[in-house]
Design a binder for these strands. Sequence first.
DNA 1: ATGGATATATCCATTTTGAATATAACACAA
DNA 2: TTGTGTTATATTCAAAATGGATATATCCAT
Lengths: 232, 232
Amino acid sequence: MRSISSPTRLTVAVDLAILTVIDGAMRVLLLRRPDDDVPGWAMPGGVVDAERGLDETVQQVLVAKTGVRDAHFEQLATYGAVNRDPRGRVISVAYLALCPHDRLEGAVAAGADQMLAHLHTTWPGEQGGPARLTDAAGQPLSMAFDHADILGDLVRRLRGKLDYSLIAFGLLHRRFTLRDVQTVHEAILGHPLAKPAFRRKLLSRGLLKATGDYAPAGAHRPAELYELLEEK
Amino acid sequence: MRSISSPTRLTVAVDLAILTVIDGAMRVLLLRRPDDDVPGWAMPGGVVDAERGLDETVQQVLVAKTGVRDAHFEQLATYGAVNRDPRGRVISVAYLALCPHDRLEGAVAAGADQMLAHLHTTWPGEQGGPARLTDAAGQPLSMAFDHADILGDLVRRLRGKLDYSLIAFGLLHRRFTLRDVQTVHEAILGHPLAKPAFRRKLLSRGLLKATGDYAPAGAHRPAELYELLEEK
DNA sequence: ATGGATATATCCATTTTGAATATAACACAA
DNA sequence: TTGTGTTATATTCAAAATGGATATATCCAT
């Protein structure tokens, strides 16, 4: 068996969009780049080394930055423009990781060097374009590299897959109300949905099982808790 | 600005699923691996070098292997398991390239070392799993690397995007009949479609313009030729 | 008890879908 | 010229899905 002679080798990194929904708004974990480095905010990431697969590297970064071990993650796309990193050629494989908000809020303290930024789009539906990231005060954040483009691609993909994938449930706890699911859908889509139609379509997917228990509520009727059926 | 000290560098390749539809069947260009190399059939590909972006590399491979310059292509996913190439660590970014069949048949002569293999699935719908590749006689082909898995992912993705993307039109000429579009859809989905419903839904997308010309036909009514409206 | 709030259920008109049938245009042969 | 086979195109109808509005249920606070 012939071995590969002397091929070009490049730096390969994974970048993680660690996503959650808080108070009906998409939030993504961003880290501030060091001062003497590429300026701006960026998604957490790490270089892929020779002994680790892509998924292993993602899991490692996820645990290192958030402490969360069991988040659902999936690959988004790979970005390899020659000048996307001014320090040198880096191929970045972007991943999405989904997490219920309290898991992240517990492990990630907002500070000067990291935050759960608000994630918006300036375009409707699945049109596409860069995302807009803002801080808690609504001020726009300056993004490093092509990370605003990557996050724009992410939102477009989320909107497309929302209705036929289990993405929404990765952002919820094991048990949730139908309203919780609707809130997640509205946060991702960026517009409100009609409640009866949403509920009907969600239940008709045959994915959910009513538990018979009810969420603690305020001065109103409590909502029933559902959970995902395990598919075989 | 700090430069990256001594990060791990890996071989990065692009692999191309060059797809077409011939006589109602999906076909993909495969090359036979050299005898002293990894055995089996594989998609054409090339190593990404430091000065070329991913898309540039794809275009280069496409022209080198087929002579086709204006095929539509898009990224599928990236495969980076540690042992996917027995010769060493290679990160493979898989791409889909779409081509009308006569463009490929003209440039790619079927032979002992390359062929337009038949591409099937053994699973229905968008369930997922490896693809099944066969030669002109229907004999299964032994695939190198993880290329059967990649092609399975490709088919699943195609089936999901077919109804709301322009994928089908990348496999057709500039002018085509509605039946041509249906044939492409049926080839990708792997099952027949009802003609009136297909036609109604296709036209209601508002993508097509009737030309007033008709395709030469045999002993039957000729079909009108349509073309894609240019979107702005 | 009453009212505010939210969950859940029901209803109805409209649109979309699936499936079947009818008509049109062409080539070829009797 | 006329009939027949074949495929394209048009029409029709019932069933299903959808959007929107309204009604009812359950809880807490007053």
